[in-house]
Structures are given as structure tokens and as C-alpha cells.
Design a protein around this nucleic acid. Structure first.
Length: 480
RNA sequence: GGGUUGGUAGCUCAACGGUAGAGCAGUUGCCUUUUAAGCAAUUGGUUCUGGGUUCGAAUCCCAGCCAACCCA
């Protein structure tokens, strides 16, 4: 039927797919042009997708949607002429893209509206839009056909636009502080900087296997060696692991490195960043955390607590860290946890942290001085070499940002890598160690998972709601 | 990887072993200031796929595919 209308239009010598329009304003800019009490004095050209269509005989109200939102248009037979009005009425469909020129006026009910003098169809929608009232709710279609979700579901439009603004704000915030944005390789010989299973790939011309990066860290530190004292990268990481409400195989990380700073400097930086995000993007310093029912208040003082103190508090045992592994396992099981006897000592303790403590930390909390086994890239704490000079920022029960005083002693770094790699020495990034031997300045570094940050700040329930095209299984429908 | 739930018209959903339906969208009329839905008429289906049980299956059973949620 829509194809028939397209054919009819082409038969008259007009092909919408060869037509265009030059809008003078976006929808909300156009509305702002209206001068009160002065109907039909300002002329604008706007363009967008037809989302409601209400014909009332010789006059009609329709709405179009563009990037900024929705604007109402008013078509009258006696303004555009009988012939054009018939084209408007018979050849246009919901979902079509049109451009119109007309004057601004205010309707009886007070809505600023374009009184259309001329219009052009610039793309014909050959398939119908999902229903306007209920929107599109089938989650599979929401994710696979995100464009439809964005057209009909206002919350999705808003949420994903907020994500764009968050990322853009972060760039400005860091650039204002003299950080340089750099781009480092996605294809790497060794996947370093984190413990995760990488995706494998192969370069034909070089006949070499590569992995997709799992972290940005080791290349950004090479930049510190190279004399870029403040660097950051916002980039995609890839981890070949499970898919869940909190995990997508490709996800976006911000990593920031600042020479002559340390993990405490990162604390200040991240608090400043959140405060400016609250002011400039969210417009509030308080957000509701649906899962806990609490209100997260970014303006209040952020709690700082040592990892070991949290464990001692949770287990009720001030001497927890001197217990034998068997006693720790017994203690964890007494708290209701399932423990694999093959786990290392620190893994048993970390299970308590991950399962029982972290989910309860709703207000912004810096957990500091984690056990050294949890990260080989940080400096050891001077007065307790079993821990490292780091924090893990927890908000809303989620890890949002880890930060370290970065290890810059090449020999200690090598030992830490070797201890971690065990038999798999080929997985050590030797070139990174070579770079460290040339001297890396002392530095603070921090990573922020952008997707999780967006979940937190937009109140989304799933990582899929803040990623435009989340990973799904491919299906035959993809080639339909 | 395991468990639970779901897949019916373009979309949102009914029908729960006995003729596949509604609302919106679409189509055809009428209607010159409307706000999800004007009034009237009307079109539209391989009920995810493949087997099985049954006189009869959207419905019950088995397998598969896809998705969501929970767990690992």
C-alpha cells in the first residue's frame, strides 16, 4: 500500500528519494523563535519524521519529530491549495520524513505550531511505525531494531542522549585540566592490563594472530614514558566472557593517567568529575537508586574505608587476615557463601567483599588498600606491603572506578607479572616492561566503566539500555 | 553452562483441548484549532520451527531456535 503511494507519486514525476530540504531550525529552536502575541510573523523550515497524523476534513494537525523533539504542524486546504492538500492527505503516512516551511502561531490550547505553507516528502517509510501509545516493548526488537525504539520510546531517546552528553562532558572536563586524548591499539599481541579472556583474531597480510584489547592501561602508560604527562582514552574494550545485565562483550572504558599524582589525586579528580556531571548534565546531585530504594547524594561527603576494615566488620573478626585458609573458608561458609576449596586465600576473602559488602555500598564509597593479589599494576602500600595504594569507587553497589598509584618500578612490575602469569610467561607484555625500564613518572591512574556510569546516572536497569546496539545472537532475520 | 518465563495481525495484547479475536496502525467515506484514541464501515494470520498425543492442538508432550529474568 505504501509502495503503491510511492509509485503514484513517482508517476506524477516526483520521487521523494531524490528530494531534499534545508531546515532553518531544529524543532525546539523553531518553537523558541515564536514571539508572543505575534502569530504568523516568523517563518521557519523544519524537517522530521511524521509521528502523529490527525485529519479533520479541510484542516489537519500532525506532529513531526527531529533530534530535539516534537513540533506540531497545521495544514489547511485553503493555505496550501486543494491539490497539495490532497497529496498531503492521501500520499503521506506515519513514519514518512518531510520538510515544511510555514509561519509560527499559537493554537487555542497554547501550543506553538507551524502553519504550513509548503511541504516536501523527502523519504517514504515503506514499513509502518510501531504503535504510538504502547510504544515498542518487545525487548528483542528494542535491541535489534534500536532505531524503532528511538523513534517511538521517548525514555530511550532521552537515556541514550544523556549518554552522549555524559561522554562529551567527560572529554571537556579532562581537556580543561590539560589532559590529552590519545588513541591506542585495539589489535594487540598480548592482552594486558586486566585479567580477562580476550577475543582472538588473525591478520592475513602479517600472518599473525592478534587479540582485541581487554584494557587500555599498558599503552597509556607507555604515553607517560613518552612524556605525555596527562593522557586519557575513551575506548572500546572486548572481553570474551558472559553476557548479562551488567556485561556486554564490548564495552567502553575511560582511562586517565596523570603524572606526578597518585591514587589520592584521582580521588579528588573523580569527585570533581561527578560534581560537574551533576551540575552540567543531570541538573541534580541526587539520583534515585531503584534497586535499594535509597537516594544517592553526590554532594554529600564520600565515604572512605579500607578494604580490610570492611572485611573485619562483616566477619566480626578483627584477626580475620591472620586466619588460616581453612578457617577463612569456614568463616565464609558461616556467612552463607559457597566457597570453592581450590580458591586462593585472597579469593575466599574477596568473595565476602564481592557478594556481601559491595552490593550494600550504595552511597559513593572509596574502598582503599585492596589486597595486592587483586592488581599487579599498583604500588605496594609502604606500611602494609600486603596491600596496594588504590581505591575502588563503589556507587549503587557497583564498581564504578578503580584507581591506583601506578607501579613504575620495572623490576617489581616484572615480579608481579611473573607471579600472576605462573606458567604462562608468554602472556607477559615484555615491551611494556622495556618501556618502564626507560623510566615512567610516578602517576595516578583511574578507569571508569562508561556503560556502568551511564546505568547509574540514568537509572537504567540493564547495560543494554545504555548501549545503542547491545550484543545479541545473530539470527537469520539479520539478513532478511 | 543450569533453572524459570515468554514467542499469536505491522505494534500492544486476548483466546488455556472445540469456528483464532480486540485496540492502535492500514483501507474507504464524512469532518477547517486537534492533544494516545473524532464518527462509521472494512482489510489483515504458516499462532517461532520440526515432531508427537488426540476425532480435533495457539492451547498438552518432546526437540530445536530466539529473547528476558535468576543462578553459576
Amino acid at each position: 500500500m505504501r509502495r503503491q503511494k510511492l509509485a503514484d507519486l513517482r508517476a506524477t514525476g516526483f520521487d521523494p528519494f531524490r528530494a531534499s530540504v534545508s531546515p532553518t531550525h531544529f524543532s525546539q529552536e523553531a518553537i523558541a523563535q515564536y514571539v508572543d502575541e505575534q502569530d504568523n510573523t516568523v517563518t521557519v523550515t523544519v524537517a522530521g519524521r511524521l509521528i502523529t497524523f490527525r485529519v479533520q476534513g479541510g484542516s489537519s494537525f500532525v506532529k513531526i519529530q527531529d533530534q530535539q523533539g516534537i513540533i506540531q504542524l497545521y495544514f489547511r486546504k485553503d493555505v496550501i491549495g486543494e491539490e497539495r492538500y490532497l497529496v498531503f492527505k492521501k500520499q503521506l503516512d506515519l513514519g514518512d520524513l518531510i520538510g515544511v516551511t510555514g509561519t509560527l502561531f499559537k493554537t487555542k490550547t497554547g501550543e506553538i505550531t507551524v502553519r504550513v505553507e509548503s511541504f516536501t516528502l523527502v523519504a517514504k517509510a515503506l514499513r509502518p511505525l510501531p504503535e504510538k501509545w504502547h510504544g515498542l516493548s518487545d525487548p528483542e526488537q528494542v535491541y535489534r531494531q534500536r532505531y524503532l525504539d528511538l523513534i517511538v520510546n521517548q525514555e530511550s531517546r532521552q537515556r541514550l542522549m544523556t549518554r552522549s552528553r555524559i561522554v562529551s562532558h567527560i572529554r571537556r572536563f579532562l581537556e580543561d585540566r590539560k589532559f590529552l586524548e590519545v588513541e591506542t591499539p585495539v589489535l594487540q599481541g598480548v592482552a594486558g592490563g586486566a585479567a580477562a579472556r580476550p577475543f582472538q583474531t588473525h591478520h592475513n597480510a602479517l600472518n599473525t594472530d592478534f587479540v582485541l584489547r581487554i584494557s587500555l592501561e599498558l599503552y597509556l602508560k607507555r604515553m607517560l614514558v613518552g612524556g605525555y604527562d596527562r593522557v586519557f582514552e575513551i575506548g572500546r574494550n572486548f572481553r570474551n566472557e558472559g553476557v548479562s545485565r551488567r556485561h556486554n562483550p564490548e564495552f567502553t572504558m575511560l582511562e586517565v593517567y596523570q603524572a606526578y599524582s597518585d591514587y589520592r589525586g584521582m580521588m579528588t579528580l573523580v569527585q570533581d568529575l561527578f560534581r560537574s556531571l551533576c551540575t552540567d548534565v543531570l541538573g541534580t546531585s541526587q539520583i534515585n537508586h531503584a534497586a535499594s530504594g535509597e537516594t544517592i547524594d553526590f554532594a554529600a561527603e564520600w565515604r572512605e574505608v579500607k578494604y580490610k576494615d570492611l572485611i573485619r566488620e562483616k566477619t566480626g573478626n578483627p584477626d580475620w587476615f591472620s586466619l588460616s585458609k581453612a578457617d577463612k573458608i569456614a568463616g565464609a561458609e558461616a556467612l552463607g557463601l559457597k566457597v570453592d576449596p581450590a580458591w586462593e586465600d585472597y579469593e575466599v576473602t574477596n568473595e565476602i567483599f564481592g557478594k556481601l559488602i559491595e552490593p550494600k555500598l550504595i552511597q559513593p564509597t572509596f574502598v582503599t588498600h585492596l589486597p595486592k593479589e587483586l592488581c599487579p599494576l599498583a604500588k605496594l602500600t609502604l606500611d602494609d606491603p600486603s596491600t596496594i595504594d588504590v581505591f575502588e569507587l563503589i556507587i549503587g553497589g557497583m564498581e564504578i572506578a578503580p584507581a591506583y598509584s601506578e607501579q613504575n618500578d620495572p623490576d617489581v612490575q616484572r615480579q608481579m607479572f611473573e607471579a600472576q602469569a605462573g606458567e604462562e610467561v608468554q602472556n607477559i607484555d615484555q615491551d611494556f616492561l622495556l618501556a618502564l625500564e626507560h623510566g615512567m613518572p610516578p602517576a595516578g591512574g583511574m578507569g571508569i566503566g562508561i556503560d556502568r556510569l551511564c546505568i547509574l546516572l540514568t537509572g537504567a536497569e540493564s547495560i543494554r539500555d545504555v548501549i545503542l546496539f547491545p550484543q545479541l545472537r545473530t539470527t537469520a532475520a539479520d539478513s532478511k
